[in-house]
Amino acid sequence: MRIQVSRELLDRQLVDVDGRLVGKVDDVEFALGADGVPYLRTLLSGPGALGLRVGGRLGRMLVLTAERFVTDRPMAPLRIPYALVTRVDSAVWLRVRAEDLGTSPVEEWLRRNLIDRIPGAGRAGG
């Protein structure tokens, strides 16, 4: 598969095998293969990776805001091996379920401390 990383991969929506929205491709990581040719190894997703790419004061503020919700800092981004990608079009489709990738710490914190405490949080509005 031949793709342009900056045009067709970065900032695209990550979607899991059930159609759930996992996050954005906030950054990517390359590695050197045994033959010395670089290849795309990992997709990174999460405020830590996004903040670095946004850069400047704005990027730092973004990371600091997200870090208020976690205990272990610095905040590690979600790492998705590129081998898990099945298809890249207007979104990046993964062959795994979102649960198997691990939930975002911010999502988890807000779920536990705010949303789940409001009656009716478990039912979709439709």
Binding site: Q13, L14, R20, L21, V22, G23, K24, S45, P47, L50, S104, V106, E107, E108, L110, R111, L114, I115, D116, I118, G120, A121, G122, R123, A124, G125, G126
Partner: peptide, 16 residues
């Protein structure tokens, strides 16, 4: 940010 959104999923699945 790429979060889960919308009214098809329950609020706890779209906490952010």
């Amino acid at each position: 940010f790429g979060w889960q959104w919308g009214k098809r999923v329950s609020p706890r699945e779209a906490a952010r």
